[in-house]
């Protein structure tokens, strides 16, 4: 089983502030981590390897400091690490990112399963998985909460989370799978893993090392353009009732009625 796990390095918190003067993100003092959803993908890759044998390759695109996240993935049980890093990759939207990652996956070669988290906590798009699948011309399944089994015929059985329940699916390898948190509980890095991660050679590829059309990379290959960034307006001064509880509840319901927000029995439908 040749497994690729795509990971993204993201800022450690969603508590990102905006500099009101420059209208830009303040990332100062914020540590970088592996996107939390991708951590589940790494763990699932390692579990599949433990069950079916094979190799777990971890792949990322980004500036050179992503090296640290790839080493962390090694400490968590990944076997090989690949970093796509080049000035021409910078400024990529999801289309250009997926195009570049797909080129990296092709270079790794003969891949059976591509795993990633359902979305990154900075961009929150969830688009790269399906877009990588399209680039590789293979199917994808999103929001997977369980990989039931992979049989000898190369069929994979999965459970996909939906809004109102879940659906059990069967498809053929190779496939791109995005995972939700429910799928597993990631292990902590072992001491041996940490030692290994320190010494591990990270394969670093620039645009020249992979087969790509340069026009499809980075800013040039990105159809979308961010034209404005701003902080969402805060809710206008909330009303907090901190007196007697019966009184507080009464006041709350009166407020809700007064502002035309009806609840339950007051709609007359109970």
């Amino acid at each position: 089983m040749n497994i690729v796990v795509c990971i993204k390095q993201v800022p450690d918190t969603t508590d990102v502030k905006i500099n009101p003067e420059t209208n830009t993100l303040i990332r100062e003092g914020v540590e970088s981590i592996i996107n939390p959803f991708d951590a589940y993908a790494i763990e699932e890759g390692v579990r599949l390897k433990e069950k079916y044998g094979g190799t777990v390759n971890v792949l990322s695109m980004g500036p050179p400091q992503v090296d640290a996240s790839l080493r962390e993935a090694i400490s968590l049980g990944a076997d090989e690490a690949y970093l796509l890093t080049d000035r021409t990759f910078a400024g990529a939207d999801t289309l250009a990112t997926a195009y570049t990652l797909a080129a990296g996956i092709r270079k790794i070669g003969d891949v059976d399963i591509i795993l990633m988290g359902r979305q990154a906590i900075d961009g929150d798009t969830g688009q790269v998985g399906p877009e990588v699948a399209e680039n590789l011309d293979i199917p994808h399944v999103t929001d997977i909460r369980k990989i039931e089994q992979i049989d000898d015929q190369g069929s994979i059985y999965l459970e996909r989370l939906l809004e109102e329940g879940y659906v059990r699916l069967k498809t053929k390898l190779p496939v791109v799978i995005t995972v939700v948190k429910e799928i597993n509980e990631p292990r902590l890095p072992s001491l041996k893993g940490k030692m290994l991660a320190k010494k591990k050679e990270i394969n670093t590829w620039s645009a020249k090392d992979v087969e790509v059309n340069e026009k499809r990379l980075g800013l040039t290959g990105s159809p979308t353009q961010v034209v404005k960034i701003f902080t969402p307006p805060k809710p206008a001064g909330g009303k907090v009732f901190d007196g007697d509880i019966k009184d507080s509840v009464g006041k709350l319901l009166r407020e809700l009625r007064a502002s035309g927000i009806l609840m339950g029995s007051e709609k007359g439908d109970e």
Partner: peptide
């Protein structure tokens, strides 16, 4: 911006080679 929509539209956008803004 449902689970299905957010799975389908990226594949379409990538197929056509156009931009897609999520959610």
């Amino acid at each position: 911006g449902t689970i299905f929509g957010r799975s389908l539209l990226p594949k379409v956008a990538s197929n056509i080679g156009t931009g897609l803004t999520a959610d």
